[in-house]
């Protein structure tokens, strides 16, 4: 598959946006500017970017507690995502959701749910809605390998498969559900193997190779848009940091971490773009500088934004 140059550069920029964004979130947390906790997406960027590069603005995604990357990849503005994480009035959810519950309906980002696995039936429901409204939209549902052990995984995929709904079930297998290694809770190695149980394709891809993710998602989107139903895509990936902010991730062997860090999705994609002469060193550096500046602007916007008025807590319970 040959991707046009513009698309590849766009994907490179998105990867960098998410990485720089997450590094800034980490710093801001250290400065006590982020209330609560954070679950950083650094290391998994190729999954969100590779999938969302196939989606139109009016397509939908559902996300998880580790959702900053999904939001950015689907086209949310950095400054408003950052503002939400800082609990500010200018955040997408006006400070009501925070890091674990961001949504941006204007770009089809139907929201992150912090209950593991809860997004699968909701994504299937968006798919049913597309079917009933007779549009050609698709839904990408992100979740981790831990979520694949929830009943909602089974129930949601079964319904989507049964009704041939236009849904991509994108499993980001980062090997650990909090501190629990996959092999301690599952007798199989590939979540994608479960696809056969629902009569849908289950595909394993290198989740740290944005082109591989792009291509797998491209096929799944075509399948979904043409009414052939869902695909289960398992992206093998790894988070750079611990589960949440204060997790030193000592349960992961040093060698394993080192091995995965060598397969960093951004380093790899940059090398590939240079090798393919899609970008020169200077152009790649320039993109990174631009991204760093944009993230700085987002931080400035978020830090300078006001908190919501306390009584706004009473709004939006009912319409």
């Amino acid at each position: 598959m040959t991707l046009e140059k513009r698309k590849k550069i766009e994907m490179y920029r998105k990867l960098l946006e998410i990485r720089h964004f997450e590094e800034k979130v980490y710093d801001l947390y250290g400065q006590n500017l982020v209330p609560g906790t954070i679950h950083l997406y650094a290391g998994q960027e190729a999954v969100a970017v590779g999938v969302c590069a196939n989606l139109r603005r009016d397509d939908y995604i559902t996300s998880t507690h580790r959702g900053h990357g999904h939001c950015i990849a689907k086209g949310a503005q950095l400054n408003r995502v950052m503002a939400e994480i800082l609990g500010k009035k200018t955040g997408y959810c006006k400070g009501k959701g925070g890091s674990m519950h961001i949504a941006n309906f204007s770009v089809g980002m139907l929201g992150a749910t912090a209950v593991v696995g809860a997004g699968l039936p909701i994504a299937a429901g968006a798919g049913l809605s597309i079917r009933l409204r007779k549009t050609d939209q698709v839904v990408a549902c992100f979740f981790g390998e831990g979520a694949s052990n929830q009943g909602t995984f089974h129930e949601g995929i079964n319904m989507a498969a049964l009704w041939k709904l236009p849904v991509l079930f994108v499993c980001e297998n980062n090997l650990y559900a909090m501190g629990t290694r996959q092999s301690r809770v599952m007798a199989i190695e590939n979540v994608a193997d479960r696809g056969v149980a629902y009569g849908i394709p289950g595909v394993v891809v290198d989740g740290n190779d944005v082109m591989a993710v792009y291509e797998a998602a491209c096929e799944a989107v075509e399948r979904a848009r043409s009414g052939k139903g869902p695909t289960l895509i398992e992206c093998k990936t790894y988070r750079h940091k611990g589960h949440s902010r204060f997790d030193p991730a000592t349960y992961r062997p040093k060698e394993e971490v080192e091995e995965w860090m060598k397969r960093d999705p951004i380093t790899r994609f940059r090398a590939r773009l240079l090798e393919m002469k899609t970008l020169t060193e200077e152009e790649a550096d320039k993109i990174e500088q631009d991204v760093a500046a944009a993230v700085e602007d987002a931080v400035k916007f978020a830090v300078e934004s006001p908190f919501p008025a306390p009584e706004e807590a009473l709004e939006h319970v009912y319409i």
Binding site: T62, G111, L120, P121, G125, I130, L132, T152
Partner: peptide, 28 residues
């Protein structure tokens, strides 16, 4: 049959699917 949809015995997904449809323009 599409507007009077029989479902599998999956209460969690019945409500999840209905919720997903509700936030994307339907009234389940």
């Amino acid at each position: 049959d599409e507007r009077v949809q029989d479902t599998p015995i999956s209460e969690s997904a019945i409500i999840g699917v209905a919720t997903g449809a509700a936030i994307t323009g339907m009234r389940p």
